[in-house]
Amino acid sequence: MEKIEAVFLDRDGTIGGDDTVHYPGEFNLFPLSYELISRLKENGIKVFSFTNQPGISQGKATIADFIEELTEFGFDDIFICPHNHDDDCSCRKPKTGMLLNGAKKHKLELENCVVIGDRWSDILAASKADCKKILVKTGAGNSALSEHYQKIKDIEIEYIAKDLVDAVNWILYRQS
């Protein structure tokens, strides 16, 4: 595997929480998520949050609330889609806007980046942007492999991980 420049991490179901949205103040990281973000960074890999948060456009939380929370988790940068499901934006996963913005801002080659997520939309966005793809079985990961499998069945997923620990270990093993 080429040297990984950055990892784009989904929030809900990937680094904590479950298959539903929990707003800042109610969101709990999985054990070791903070340490795993730090381990990636210690290995010279930038770590970005990229998350769909339609509750922002519904007034349930603010972008500032999410930025404050995600900054505390140790992310190098944060990319948030605040739009509703039916808004025609370019950033909401499975669209690639957040990944493209991250690549432009940080001068990255997306084929040298990894997306880790639990939903079919994370994997599809990663595929469209030519990133490496890791699906975690936490959160909505199992449903991505069952009821939503048709949406990603033609995508070569580099790794299906039990959880974030497994995903990060897989990346770091291949970087050594």
Score class of each variant (00 low, 15 high):
Leu124Phe: 11
Gly117Val: 13
Cys89Ala: 02
Gly141Asp: 00
Ala144Glu: 10
Ile80Lys: 01
Ala144Pro: 12
His106Pro: 07
Leu124Ser: 01
Ser143Asp: 12
Gly74Trp: 08
Glu109Cys: 04
Ser127Val: 01
Phe73Asp: 03
Lys133Cys: 12
Ile80Asp: 06
Leu108Thr: 10
Val115Ala: 12
Asp65Ile: 02
Ile123Glu: 13
Ala64Thr: 10
Ile123Tyr: 10
Thr96Glu: 12
Leu100Ser: 12
Asn112Ile: 09
Asp76Ala: 08
Ser127Trp: 09
Asn112Glu: 14
Lys132Ile: 14
Gly102Leu: 12
Asp118Ile: 08
Gly102Gln: 03
Ile80Val: 11
Ile116Leu: 06
Cys113Leu: 09
Ala140Ser: 07
Asp88Ala: 13
Ala144Tyr: 07
Asn142Met: 01
Val115Trp: 10
Pro82Cys: 14
His85Asp: 15
Gly102Phe: 00
Ala129Glu: 06
Ala103Pro: 11
Ile134Thr: 02
Gly97Arg: 08
Lys133Thr: 13
Ile134Met: 01
Lys133Tyr: 00
Ile123Gly: 07
Asp122Pro: 01
Pro82Leu: 04
Thr138His: 03
Asp76Pro: 09
Cys89His: 05
Asp118Leu: 03
Cys131Gln: 07
Leu108Trp: 09
Asn112Thr: 12
Lys128Thr: 12
Cys91His: 13
Thr71Gln: 12
Lys137Pro: 00
Ala125Met: 07
Ile78Trp: 04
Ile116Ala: 05
Met98Ser: 07
Leu108Cys: 12
Asp76Phe: 06
Lys137Phe: 05
Ala140Lys: 05
Ala103Met: 15
Ile78Val: 15
Asp86Cys: 11
His106Gln: 06
Gly74Gln: 09
Ile134Asp: 05
Leu135Pro: 04
Ala64Leu: 05
Ala103Cys: 15
Gly102Trp: 02
